[in-house]
């Protein structure tokens, strides 16, 4: 009906299967321990259903809708970032222009103008924002404000827009289509979070960066690495143009940098002394809490793929 390539369609069904298992186990666990409160787990799983349903619907509707979805995610992430990080009241109008970068960047994706897509934010927005700040004329706190705004746009718009660009690359694995690339990246990144968490819970002893995240351990990190590289080696050839060996390496990229993205956003929250970056996604927190790893894995997976397969 929606013309979804076979491999991607099968993988979507597989993800729904996993969700179903998650929901059922939640019901069984809460029935076994009726006096324990499972509200957060319940909200978490319910939010997963919503997020995956929205993603799959937009991917199935076609490239334009999927690009719009990622533009909306960039908008929500940028807004959340600029809301939790202290900024100057006088920079309101500069921030307005930072938002304008979103439709432009995603328009560049939609017309497949790679050359401008890749420099628009690092060069033009980077130079334009301080120019606009100078016109307002407030010099107190100028350096910090300029840094914060550029960092915010780079993380939430430039980095995340790479997910959308995967959709417009020339098609190299016809059985999975380009949505296979997006599903691979998103699934692997989220599965990486989960496996690091599970390995850490099961075996975790030696903290890896205790000052940022006391719960992250070497055991979790290495367990996640083994799980993700092996899973990638199996799924990669199915959903992407990558061979088994190259998929294994893609898994390693996603594993290492997913972890780093996670702890970078954790450091931001720790600096601000907040636990969640927002309250948009029940059970998960804000949009940055969910997309922290993807901020790092999206551009790095993209450029890895672009280098080895295009």
């Amino acid at each position: 009906m929606f013309d979804i390539p076979q491999h991607s369609f099968n993988f979507m069904l597989f993800v729904f299967g996993l969700l179903l298992i998650g929901s059922l186990s939640r019901i069984i666990i809460s029935q076994k321990n009726p006096d324990k409160d499972y509200t957060e787990l319940h909200q978490r799983i319910q939010s997963w259903w919503w997020m995956i349903a929205i993603l799959f619907i937009c991917l199935s509707l076609g490239t334009t809708y999927a690009i719009l979805l990622f533009a909306l995610i960039s908008f929500l992430a940028l807004k959340e970032f600029l809301s939790i990080v202290p900024g100057r009241q006088s920079d309101r109008r500069v921030i307005f222009w930072a938002y304008i970068a979103i439709p432009v960047q995603y328009y560049l994706v939609s017309i497949q103008w790679y050359g401008l897509f890749i420099i628009f934010i690092p060069i033009y927005i980077f130079l334009f924002l301080p120019m606009r700040m100078v016109l307002i004329g407030e010099t107190k706190g100028f350096i910090k404000a300029a840094g914060v705004m550029h960092w915010a746009v780079m993380l939430t718009v430039f980095c995340l827009s790479h997910i959308a660009y995967l959709l417009v690359l020339p098609e190299k694995n016809a059985a999975a289509g380009n949505i296979g690339l997006v599903i691979f990246l998103l699934f692997m990144t989220q599965f990486n979070d989960v496996s690091q968490y599970v390995w850490g819970k099961a075996l975790g002893k030696h903290p890896i960066i205790p000052r940022v995240s006391p719960n992250k351990t070497w055991e979790g990190f290495l367990g996640g690495m083994a799980t993700i590289t092996l899973t990638s080696a199996f799924i990669g050839p199915y959903l992407t143009p990558l061979s088994l060996e190259l998929s294994l390496l893609a898994g390693l990229v996603i594993n290492v940098f997913g972890f780093i993205g996670d702890v970078v956003i954790s450091s931001v929250k720790r600096d601000l002394q907040i636990k969640d970056s927002g309250a948009l996604i029940p059970g998960h927190g804000g949009i940055l809490d969910r997309f922290d790893s993807l901020i790092f894995t999206s551009p790095l997976f993209f450029h890895y793929l672009y280098y080895v397969a295009y």
Binding site: K79, S83, I84, Q89, R92, R93, F96, Y99, G278
Partner: peptide, 19 residues
């Protein structure tokens, strides 16, 4: 908290912020 950033007194331009 936050709405004074999105649309403060005397401003007509609404800039998105969480509140």
């Amino acid at each position: 908290h936050g709405l004074g950033k999105a649309l403060p007194k005397g401003e007509a331009l609404l800039v998105p912020f969480n509140c």
